[in-house]
């Protein structure tokens, strides 16, 4: 299972790597980072998961390409860990006398997600349009995985929490805009 604090702390580390001592601002002038570094600012839906969102300070860095690539790598990692977690969880659940992992339909879902992960990891996106497309593909794969968790996927402390954070981060930092072309 993906831990509650995993994504926020990794996001902080990404800010520090891309812009040491600063934050990276989104195209709309927001900064997304952990509650630990930004304080309790922003929507409750994020705060409950350990992330805060504020208006970017003037010192924030606006060269976002490296940050965006880092976000995609984090999303890929969250997706991969969720896939591993799903396999373990489904292997341990039995219905009608057999492991859920033994069901062809479940196996096909897992294999499809694995193929998306492999395809996305094959080479960097390179363009904003490509980054957004990668992000959307991974969002779709993540949603598909979460369906295999049943109602558990609606819990904050399930893999859905980190996957939701990857979606919000993508919505903030990865979405292509007319004035944001290569």
């Amino acid at each position: 299972m993906v831990g509650l604090e995993a994504y926020p702390s990794r996001l902080d580390a990404l800010h520090a790597t891309v812009a040491p001592g600063f934050y990276v601002a989104s195209v709309r002038g927001h900064v997304l980072a952990s509650v630990g570094t930004l304080g309790s600012a922003g929507p409750e839906s994020l705060l409950r998961l350990g992330l805060a969102c504020t208006a970017a300070p003037p010192s924030a860095v606006r060269d976002r390409a490296a940050f965006a690539d880092g976000l995609l790598a984090m999303q890929l990692d969250v997706l991969r860990r969720t896939l591993t977690g799903a396999m373990a969880r489904l292997d341990g659940r039995v219905s009608e006398g057999t492991s859920l992992l033994g069901r062809p339909q479940v196996q096909a879902d897992l294999a499809d997600v694995a193929m998306v992960i492999q395809e996305t990891a094959a080479e960097p996106a390179g363009t904003w349009r490509g980054r957004w497309a990668c992000h959307l593909r991974m969002v779709g794969a993540g949603r598909r995985l979460l369906r295999l968790f049943g109602g558990h996927a609606m819990l904050l402390d399930s893999p859905a929490g980190d996957l939701y954070l990857t979606e919000v981060a993508g919505n903030l930092y990865l979405q292509e805009q007319a004035d944001d072309q290569d």
């Binding site: 927001h30 969102c53 049943g150 609606m154 930092y173």
Partner: peptide
């Protein structure tokens, strides 16, 4: 960009609808 931050009701609906699957 930032629609999930700047439109709280949309963000809520975005999360709410996922329950219908289950």
């Amino acid at each position: 960009p930032a629609s999930l931050i700047e439109h709280p009701w949309l963000d809520k609906l975005y999360r709410d609808v996922r329950a219908f699957e289950f």
